[in-house]
Amino acid sequence: MRYWIRVYAAQLKLATAIMFQYRFSVLIWAIWGFVGPLLGLAIWSAATEAKGGSITSARGVTFSQADFAAYFLVFMIVSHLTMSWDAFEFAFRVRDGNLSPRLLKPVLPIHGDIANNFAFKIVTSTMLLPVWALLFYLLKPNIHFSIVNILIAIPAIFLAVLIRYLFQYCLAMFAFWTTRVEAINQLYFTVDGFLAGRIAPLALFPGWLGVIAYYSPFRSMATFPVEIILGRLPAEQFLTGFLYQIFWLGAGVGLFKLLWAGGMKQYSAVGA
């Protein structure tokens, strides 16, 4: 345990230093995080206005404009906390052989990457905090934070981070076989965004689409904690939500081990 703490502390320090060298790229990622949810909010606010102030789904879920503001703001923050872009980075390393020196280190590259990801989240979240506060002030969301729900949401967010991270890492490992994975990643991001509720809240999805979204792994990666924080999920569904998360985490770990073992056999550095 002490060993792992030291490993992660060292990686965190390194990653934070690197982060400050790439301020502009960090800014662009942050903007990407804002644009989607705000566009979603704009279209749904306009739709609510046309409906005279609130929208009610077939299952009796009601959203007012302030509810949409709350949803998309919380979604924005949780998405930022759980998102990662490592899939792109990893493919790069495989292609130009940069992965080789990392393989010689005594810990698997994924540990460095996870630490890197945490550093990214810590640095950027601190930077974004005033912007989020400003958005809360400007958009006047209808939200009543309950301490209990936030405490329950913390482990849910933590699990969501891990699940999303593992799935993306697995996706990135396709680079061992195809080298060009940008398009596959883009495809994945599109599906992820839609099924996690970036364009519309899952509660408003009609029929079969709602069922798919409910059982998809993407709900465990972002939507579930959002629902907890907003208080939109009845308490008796918390347990099933966590069970889904644990299931997808297990699936992610299994897939990672499988792909890593296969990929290592496949991988040979340039010149080998």
Binding site: I43, I55, S57, I184, V191, I199, A200, P206
Partner: peptide, 28 residues
Amino acid sequence: SRIIASLLALLTTMAGLSIAFTYTSSIK
């Protein structure tokens, strides 16, 4: 694969809009 990715982006936007329009017949 890039083209498939951008087609899918179009498709999800269409789906999102059609969800919004199941609740109202006109937006602005």
